[in-house]
Amino acid sequence: MSQYLVLKALHVLGAAILLGTGTGIAFFMLMAHRTRDAAFVARTAATVVVADALFTATAVIAQPVTGYLLVRETGRSLTEGWIALSLGLYLVAGLFWLPVVWIQARMRDLAAEAARGRGPLPATYHRLFRLWFTCGVPGFGSVLATGWLMIAKPSLWG
C-alpha cells in the first residue's frame, strides 16, 4: 500500500473520530442534561471528559499532522484555497473546543457535588451548560465545514 493511501486513511479516520466523538458527546451530554438528575449528569460528564481526552485529543493532534503530510505528498500548497480555509476553520474549531474541555470537567464536578449533597444542579452548572452548547455550535460547525472541504476540494481562489 502506498504512503499516500496510508496517510489518507489515517486522515479520514481522524476526521471520522472527530465527527463521531463530537456528535456522541453532544448527544449524551444533552440527554443527560435534560434529565436534570445530578448523579446521572455527573456520570455522563465523567465519561465525556475521558472520551474527549482519549479520542478527540488524539484526533486533534493527528489531523494536522496527516493533513500536512498529505499536502506534502501530493505537491499541493497550504495556501491553496480549500486547504487554507480548512486550516482556518480547524483553528476556529480548536478555539471553541479548548474551553469546552474545561467546561465539561467543571460541569462534571458541579454535578458530582450536587449529587453528593442530593441537591439539584446549581445555577452555575446551567450557565456553563448554555456556554458549552453555545461554543459547540460554531466549534462543531467548523469541523463539519472542514470535512466538506476535505471531500469537495472546491476551487475557492487563485
Rank of each mutant, 00 (worst) to 15 (best):
A38W: 04
A38L: 04
A39L: 09
A39M: 00
F40M: 13
F40V: 14
F40W: 10
A42E: 07
A42N: 06
R43I: 09
R43Y: 03
R43P: 07
T44E: 13
T44H: 06
T44W: 01
A46D: 15
A46R: 12
T47E: 11
T47D: 06
V48N: 05
V48M: 08
V49T: 11
V50S: 04
V50R: 06
V50F: 00
V50T: 12
A51R: 01
A51D: 04
A51M: 10
A51G: 01
A51Y: 01
D52P: 07
D52W: 00
A53L: 14
A53Y: 01
A53E: 13
A53K: 11
A53I: 13
L54Q: 00
L54E: 07
L54T: 12
L54P: 00
F55N: 06
F55D: 13
T56W: 01
T56L: 02
A57K: 06
A57C: 11
A57F: 09
A57M: 11
T58K: 09
T58M: 02
T58G: 13
T58E: 02
A59G: 08
A59Q: 10
V60E: 13
A62T: 15
Q63R: 07
Q63H: 07
P64C: 06
P64A: 00
P64T: 07
V65H: 10
V65R: 11
T66H: 08
G67L: 05
G67F: 01
G67H: 03
Y68A: 12
L69P: 00
L70P: 11
L70M: 14
L70I: 09
L70V: 09
V71R: 05
V71P: 08
R72K: 15
R72H: 14
R72M: 07
R72A: 11
E73R: 14
E73N: 08
E73K: 06
E73D: 11
T74N: 01
T74W: 05
T74D: 03
T74G: 08
G75F: 08
G75C: 09
G75L: 06
